[in-house]
């Protein structure tokens, strides 16, 4: 079985986000970039499926400028077999990304496509579901457990009320939640080996997809700051303030 994993290059999750002075966007100049954490979990899950003998090949794909090759190499170092970059300098929206991925799915014919549930920059939580609709594949989103067996996959999903399990016929789409697994660190020998693994480059034109956006970003602002309040000395003072000052109890 072939597994396709889609990954995104995003700001490192430890970096403090700053809005540009002209409010046009957040400032990403000279900021450390990394593999989106949910995508890292997706790569790990695919590699574990290979280690269990369920998957025989793990292909990783990313969309973006040449810089995304850095994250593709990271995924290869974590255990993916080969990589595909869809090269574009545009910032395609989720629907365009899903259309590009559909093109890759048609070429690669994977039985399972694993994606992160959301990217920590745009926080959209859309691409996996959109790819599902475009390809007609069923989806198991926000997965905390994935069991592949005989032409189908059982996905346990983190939902508002607890956990839900669905059974999907393959080929299917899984999007990862935080507790699906704990990604490994790439070892130095694996990082060296990853440099020699195949990485093919294609383009939106070759896949026949337009990456024009229909949603315009007008403005980006810093959120209203909450200022620190007062320290209270003890429980009695806390209860008194909540009753008489804040009037919330």
């Amino acid at each position: 079985m072939k597994v396709l994993v889609a990954v995104k290059r995003v700001i490192d999750y430890n970096v403090k986000v700053r809005v540009k002075a002209d409010n046009s966007d957040v400032d990403l100049a000279n900021v450390k970039m990394a593999l989106n954490p949910f995508c890292e979990i997706a790569v790990e899950e695919a590699v574990r499926l290979k280690e269990k003998g369920i998957a025989d090949e793990v292909v990783v794909v990313s969309i973006g400028p040449k810089a995304v090759q850095e994250q593709l190499r990271t995924a290869l170092a974590l255990g993916a077999d080969r990589a595909i970059q869809v090269e574009t300098d545009e910032l395609p929206d989720s629907l365009a990304v899903a259309k590009l991925l559909k093109g890759v799915v048609e070429k690669e014919q994977p039985q399972l496509v694993i994606l992160g549930k959301q990217a920590i920059d745009s926080d959209n939580n859309q691409t996996g579901q959109m790819l599902g609709a475009l390809t007609g594949m069923p989806q198991g989103t926000f997965a905390s457990k994935v069991d592949v067996a005989d032409g189908s996959v059982n996905v346990t999903r983190e939902v508002d009320g607890g956990l839900q399990t669905v059974k999907l016929q393959l080929p299917a789409i899984v999007t990862t939640d935080l507790r699906l697994n704990e990604p490994r660190y790439a070892s130095l020998p694996n990082i060296m080996k990853a440099k020699k693994k195949p990485l093919d480059v294609t383009t939106p034109d070759e896949l026949g997809v337009s990456v024009a956006r229909t949603v315009k970003l007008l403005k980006v602002e810093a959120p209203a700051e909450r200022s620190a309040g007062v320290k209270v000395a003890d429980v009695a003072e806390l209860v008194e303030k909540l009753k008489n000052e804040a009037k919330v109890i």
């Binding site: 986000v17 957040v26 745009s122 926080d123 949603v215 315009k216 007008l218 403005k219 980006v220």
Partner: peptide, 16 residues
């Protein structure tokens, strides 16, 4: 809408 875990607020306009 919030982006970057609410560390920035984006104003977006849809042409759809």
């Amino acid at each position: 809408r919030p982006i970057y875990a609410g560390n920035a607020i984006a104003t977006v306009q849809s042409e759809d």
